[in-house]
Design a protein around this nucleic acid. Sequence first.
DNA 1: ACAAAAGGAGACAGAGTTGTCTACTCTAAA
DNA 2: TTTAGAGTAGACAACTCTGTCTCCTTTTGT
Lengths: 183, 183
Amino acid sequence: MQNKRQLLVETALQLFYQHGVNSIGINEVIKHSGIAKKTLYNYFASKEELVLATLAERHQRFINWLTAQLSDCHSNRELAEKLFSGLDLWFHNKADSLGNFRGCFFINTAAEFGDPSSAIHQACLQHKRAVEALIAAHMPQPNTALLSLLCILKEGAIVCAYVNHQPDAARQSLQALLPLLHD
Amino acid sequence: MQNKRQLLVETALQLFYQHGVNSIGINEVIKHSGIAKKTLYNYFASKEELVLATLAERHQRFINWLTAQLSDCHSNRELAEKLFSGLDLWFHNKADSLGNFRGCFFINTAAEFGDPSSAIHQACLQHKRAVEALIAAHMPQPNTALLSLLCILKEGAIVCAYVNHQPDAARQSLQALLPLLHD
DNA sequence: ACAAAAGGAGACAGAGTTGTCTACTCTAAA
DNA sequence: TTTAGAGTAGACAACTCTGTCTCCTTTTGT
């Protein structure tokens, strides 16, 4: 029954995202999921593997959400509007599938696992690359400079919303960006 | 002899910034500084106090550096240029007083200590507020929308440079920003 | 129905952590 | 010179965390 595994990943993702990976021990995941430790170690060889599975789950969920947000863009301006409107919803806890906003799981986790050669850090990097590629794929008029700017503003808005307690950062970004986009 | 305390803070800051606070134990700080554990606990009641002291040290150092970078701005455009040129130097390890670039110590530490009520998280928030105030103080033509944008771009550039291995993020930000600024 | 696999509960080993404490050494001032 | 304060070295207690293992129960496939 593979939904034990799914339940473990879901529980761990929730806890890791809300409190940080290093603050949550295996026993906490056990307790909250109601699954035995032995079962966990049946599915995952180590905590690191569980963490990687939660990153993969979050990655897929975020990509799905973002894909839905960015559908049907007919101009770069529309793309920017949809991107930052989506972020704005997320920051205000109106993006159900992303859970309670606590910054970017990948930025936070990369900060906890600083060694760039670690598998966890690499997974965070790969996520960011994939998101950039997804935005690029939804760009009607390819423009690498604009792509970079969107990504930088996106990361900045996430950090400001989280660390700086500035949940309107996405809207502010969009307001500042719009005068640049005339197409 | 208070330079024992200073040496402890400096050693801890270096280690915490390079590897993350939770990855570095007290014993590591002891070993690298050559100072006895008892002496450390003479100056600091707990590891948390040592962490707060390193945050304060880094804060002062960053504020000093940024103040120097932003001196003598006669227009908002010049302010933006100086800000992102400074960040560009930092990302390329050419800002001596900030050490080897490993992202923003405060963003990273806030990610490790996610509980917003913890003293450590609060210190990170206060730093961000102080930096925003410093930028505001160097703005010849007050403009709160631009101030927000500068801060969001700054955070985004730091995250992209670090997590995304994109050290030119500051230059890209500036290039994108310049068309907006005509004064 | 019954054997085999999967799961539950939790004890336990081993490593690592913070923080305390003791015993010894060095230094600086009276 | 001697005495008090500061520092050193490191053992140690108390705790936490990961990962293993055992014993027992439940579920599942044939």
